[in-house]
């Protein structure tokens, strides 16, 4: 998602002479990307959907298996719950951080941005491995807890461990859209609010929070969707008992060669993602429509 990185084009599109020839040229510029996307993105998705409905025979048996199996339904519920907790944790940590980014000077902003961007690009494998080390039964986190007389607590192979790792890894996805929206809020509105006698808390709840809501929604969406399909971190920090949908997909396809069942689960994750995107796109449009014009 390009929330942060696409400033609007300054001048409108170039003059239109020779439309057909230009159209052709444009087409050829897109052609390689289109071919790659069709062959290695759309085709795989299509294959998976087809397998879900035809393997081993045509019908809905893979879906009825999924929703009829208590274990699978449990996994689905656990996936949703984990994604929700991770989203809330990220929101609570990211909101003050993004706010600070909007009030510091250029140097502070550069430092705070770098501190989010570098972990964002740091290898997922490295970060997950680091959490395996930190959360292990004799790891640093347990040492610290023990120092305060609170341990040892089992963290690795539990949902708590999975949540800790995932929310740390996904936090940048929350900070970036939040900051992008908060940056655009006209701070004169805050001065106006306090000038009219509102207390800081009132100003926050009635002015700042509603104006920052699109950023919060976009960040929450990114984190929630990423959590639904997260594989590596939950697989390494969790256990089969704490499995999420993505781990079940891996097991079905790679372990049991149940292409149909794995495909059906993939379809379920895909549909949930698309539904969430559609709902939030609608919600954002609604919010955007009501929103008092913030930008100069």
């Amino acid at each position: 998602m390009s929330v942060s990185a696409s400033p609007p084009l300054p001048a409108a599109a170039a003059p239109p002479p020779g439309r057909t020839r230009r159209g052709l040229r444009n087409g050829s510029l897109f052609l390689p990307a289109a071919v790659l996307l069709a062959a290695f993105f759309l085709a795989p998705l299509a294959v998976m959907v087809v397998r879900a409905f035809t393997d081993p025979q045509t019908g809905l048996q893979n879906f009825s298996w999924f929703f009829g199996d208590a274990v699978q339904v449990d996994v689905l519920i656990r996936t949703f719950r984990t994604a929700l907790i991770v989203t809330v944790v990220c929101a609570l940590l990211a909101y003050p951080y993004a706010y600070l980014m909007t009030v510091v000077g250029p140097l502070g902003l550069a430092v705070l941005t770098l501190l989010v961007l570098v972990p964002f690009w740091t290898s997922l494998m490295v970060r997950t491995f680091a959490w395996v080390i930190l959360l292990q039964d004799t790891g640093v986190v347990n040492d610290v807890l023990g120092f305060f007389g609170l341990g040892p607590v089992q963290l690795i192979r539990t949902t708590t461990g999975v949540v800790i790792g995932m929310s740390q890894i996904l936090l940048p996805f929350m900070v970036m859209p939040l900051y992008a929206v908060m940056r655009g809020i006209d701070r004169r509105l805050l001065q106006a609010s306090s000038g009219l006698g509102a207390k800081p808390l009132t100003t926050f709840v009635k002015v700042w929070l509603p104006l920052s809501l699109p950023g919060l929604a976009a960040g929450a969406l990114m984190v929630f969707i990423s959590s639904l399909g997260f594989y590596v971190t939950p697989a390494l920090l969790g256990s089969p008992d704490t499995a999420l949908v993505s781990q079940q997909i891996f097991t079905q396809v790679n372990g049991l060669l149940e292409w149909g069942r794995g495909g059906a689960m993939g379809v379920i994750v895909l549909v949930m993602t698309l539904v969430l995107l559609a709902v939030s796109a609608g919600a954002l449009r609604l919010l955007g429509g009501q929103r008092p014009e913030g930008r100069a």
Binding site: S2, P44, L45, V47, I225, S246, W259, G263, T273
Partner: peptide, 20 residues
């Protein structure tokens, strides 16, 4: 369309790619 690969869960693409 071009940004879609970032949004669709990778595990879903991975299964299809494996089959293909």
């Amino acid at each position: 369309a071009l940004m879609a690969p970032i949004i669709v869960p990778v595990i879903v693409v991975a299964v299809g790619t494996y089959a293909l």
